[in-house]
């Protein structure tokens, strides 16, 4: 089986062949019409399949799809920020020096371009990036756990994001600019995901067996909690407010508990959960 060390030079080569320029890759229209086009694919909208969604007119649904895509691009952008700094902190270490660090430079470069691309879209058409509401408090880690947890977070943001990218990049019903952004992101993410899955598997094999039962239980509880709460990003009360829907907080709570939405999240997470079970990072399926 290929190791991360063997995979890295191939990914580096592909990154160089597929290199693109964030400042020239897109023709940005002067403005977009939130009420007259679809932006987020309708079936990916956070409250799709609920009575609340059906109660909206098509114009209102389209407006919601605009703010939903701005939200999606916003929290992916904010997910990429700590990802970049975490990758940089891992460069030129004893265990990453050489081909892995060489690939990490491309990984960071590509994430930086994604942030430019998402930031440009959000600021240009919505006049803002939805702020993230996260605070991270220091915690204690078992040996190797910080690295394992870091690459779990990377994989979660990238796998969930890619589920959406894949659906939207070939959706002809949505604004072509949005489809293209999803496509450009997906092409880079395919390499990041291949690398992330491999390196996380190796880190898990290296460290998890040495953890005490208590440390393993604590880690698994954290991972389930992190994965489940990552979905919270998709149900933003500020998005509902901007789309003209009253009591966004109540709508978020409704959607988080709604059966159709739960089934959607379970399905969209299944590839990720399968991976966590295969690598024994989890020992049971989380409830979404």
């Amino acid at each position: 089986m290929t190791s991360a060390l063997e995979l890295a030079p191939r990914l580096t080569k592909a990154s160089r062949q597929k290199s693109w320029d964030a400042h020239t890759a897109f023709d940005w229209p002067a403005s977009l019409e939130p009420d007259s086009d679809w932006y987020m694919s309708p079936e990916l909208i956070s409250i799709y399949g609920t009575e609340a969604f059906d109660a909206l007119s098509e114009t209102e649904q389209k407006r919601l799809s605009f703010y939903e895509i701005v939200n999606f691009f916003s929290f992916v952008l904010y997910g990429e920020r700590p990802l970049i700094s975490g990758l940089m902190n891992r460069m030129y270490r004893k265990n990453t020096d050489g081909p892995i660090t060489e690939y990490l430079h491309h990984f960071v470069d590509e994430e930086n371009k994604h942030m430019i691309m998402f930031g440009e879209f959000c600021n240009r058409y919505a006049g803002k990036i939805y702020p993230e509401k996260k605070l991270v408090f220091p915690r204690e880690y078992a040996v190797g756990e910080e690295d394992v947890a870091f690459f779990c977070k990377v994989l979660i943001v990238e796998e969930l994001g890619d589920f959406y990218n894949l659906k939207m990049m070939s959706d002809r019903t949505i604004a072509p600019l949005v489809a293209k952004i999803n496509k450009v992101h997906h092409v880079d993410e395919a390499r990041h995901l291949a690398f992330g899955r491999k390196i996380l598997q190796e880190l898990a094999e290296q460290h998890c067996a040495s953890w005490t039962e208590e440390e393993t239980t604590r880690f698994q509880a954290w991972l389930v909690n992190y994965l489940v709460s990552s979905w919270g990003d998709f149900y933003n009360p500020a998005v509902y407010k901007d789309a003209g829907i009253s009591d966004g907080y109540k709508l978020r709570k409704m959607a988080l508990a709604n059966e159709t939405c739960v089934a959607f999240r379970t399905e969209a997470s299944s590839k990720l959960v399968d991976y966590f079970l295969e690598t024994e990072l989890l020992n049971e399926r989380p409830q979404f």
Partner: peptide, 27 residues
């Protein structure tokens, strides 16, 4: 925990009917 804070901030926002500026607050 850290992971509950996002949900807690959204709850606080719903009670005070105003957004919280996360960059302006200390942990």
């Amino acid at each position: 925990s850290s992971l509950d804070i996002v949900e807690f901030i959204l709850f606080i926002e719903s009670v005070r009917e105003e957004e919280v500026d996360i960059e302006a607050i200390e942990p």
